[in-house]
């Protein structure tokens, strides 16, 4: 056998692409770019790493700066509906007008505080519900035979193939007064008049738990599936009954999965807007909805932007916590 056959796949691809890449990098614009990069001390590796950073810079940081800029402006009847941050005054002075009134307004008006707290509360309860429902499901999947496991995994992922909005609308059909549940209960004769489920917090919880459950199940499943089953045999061998072994071995070892799943549910649930808007009632106060109202109903872009910035700051803490736990697990 020739030596070439022993090359690992990745190396074979790079080796195979070598003549092509030599031609491409030899073309004048690429060559200039290469020479310039080389003079600046930038290597190919740095270039590869720079790409995702460039992506984030363009599509995350730049829009964020726009939003930050708007949040520091004043509402105005204009196109766009806010004042400029930097202006020429009397043609000679370059003025920067920073308006912090929007942020002060958020603090003064208790509507925003309540909306923030309520969002956090709804997200927290939803996360706990997702965990309670998702853990047994993930556990069942992880311990199933590989054939059933694939079917179950498929079933968990399947809802993603339909539009998220459509699925939330489907819940309206199920929960409304003349919807599926009430019709069945009425026809069977268990109830005399429909139970009001739509436009309540109950419906919001159903919507959030239903929508975000896969985000809880998948990291938990990945964690539980990887667990070394001989640890449970060892526990049994040392006199530990199966239920106790679950709480002393399986559960502590799945904590990284629990943290990952919980944050993947909690973080988007805090800012959730569609579900409370469609399923919630007038008393469902969530920050995502308030933001929508500020933006589209009040057309107060600066306050809406300030709300968005505040939500972001509120979420930075759990996001950082998530990052840390991910890094810890990787090491």
């Amino acid at each position: 056998m020739s030596r070439k056959a022993y090359l690992p796949l990745g190396e074979r691809i790079t080796k195979g692409a070598e003549p092509l890449s030599r031609v491409v990098w030899g073309l004048p614009p690429m060559r200039w770019f290469r020479i310039a990069a080389h003079r600046m001390g930038i290597q190919g590796r740095t270039g590869v790493i720079a790409l995702p950073y460039l992506w984030l810079l363009l599509f995350f940081l730049v829009p964020f700066i726009f939003v930050l800029k708007i949040s520091l402006a004043e509402a105005a009847i204009a196109m766009p509906p806010y004042s400029a941050l930097i202006e020429w005054a009397e043609d000679t002075y370059l003025t920067v007008r920073v308006n912090v009134a929007n942020f002060l307004f958020l603090i003064e008006d208790d509507l925003y505080w309540k909306a923030y707290l309520n969002s956090a509360k709804v997200a927290l309860i939803s996360t706990i519900l997702c965990l309670l429902i998702g853990y047994p499901m993930a556990y069942g999947m992880a311990r199933a035979t590989s054939a059933t496991r694939n079917v179950m995994l498929m079933l968990v992922i399947l809802p993603f193939w339909t539009s998220f909005l459509l699925r939330v609308y489907a819940w309206i059909g199920i929960l409304k007064n003349n919807g599926l549940i009430n019709n069945i209960l009425l026809s069977v004769g268990i109830i005399d008049e429909p139970i009001v489920m739509m436009q309540t917090n109950f419906a919001v919880y159903i919507g959030i738990v239903y929508s975000y459950l896969p985000f809880m199940i998948l990291p938990l499943y990945a964690n539980l599936e990887r667990m070394d089953m001989t640890l449970l045999e060892a526990a049994a061998d040392l006199g530990c009954r199966p239920t106790k072994a679950f709480f002393t071995i399986t559960l502590p070892l799945s904590i990284p999965g629990i943290i990952a799943g919980s944050l993947l549910v909690f973080i988007p649930a805090v800012g959730e807007f569609v579900i409370p808007a469609l399923l919630g009632g007038p008393d469902t106060l969530m920050i995502g909805r308030v933001l929508w109202d500020e933006f589209f109903a009040n057309r107060d872009w600066p306050v809406a932007s300030a709300v968005a910035i505040a939500v972001l700051l509120l979420l930075v803490i759990p996001i950082m916590f998530f990052q840390r736990s991910q890094m810890k697990e990787a090491s």
Partner: peptide, 20 residues
């Protein structure tokens, strides 16, 4: 008789030490 009630203990090939 289940493993947790047997008067035998095992040393596993992979050792199966509890990592936490």
């Amino acid at each position: 008789i289940p493993p947790y009630d047997r008067p035998a203990n095992m040393m596993f090939q992979s050792y199966a030490l509890f990592p936490h």
